[in-house]
């Protein structure tokens, strides 16, 4: 639904990088690898949190 606040594995806060990552790599054209490097998300456990996430709030919101 919403992006997880922390990485499940190591506990690093990844939620704060979601919006920029989404804008630049998912909606935009930039290479996800480079964007993650720039954001300082180094470990692969944290990287998969952002790469594999899909925001579903907009899909769910009509059904209260």
């Amino acid at each position: 639904m919403m992006v997880p606040v922390r990485c499940f594995t190591c506990g690093n806060v990844v939620g704060e990088h979601w919006e920029e990552f989404d804008e630049r790599a998912k909606q935009g054209e930039e290479d996800p690898q480079e964007v993650l490097d720039e954001l300082g998300v180094d470990r692969f456990c944290c990287r998969r949190m952002l790469v594999s996430h899909t925001d579903l709030v907009d899909v769910v919101s009509p059904y209260q």
Partner: peptide, 11 residues
């Protein structure tokens, strides 16, 4: 400590 963590998107 971090101000940009999204909690919930509100419609």
């Amino acid at each position: 400590a971090d101000e940009n963590v999204p909690i919930i998107k509100l419609k």
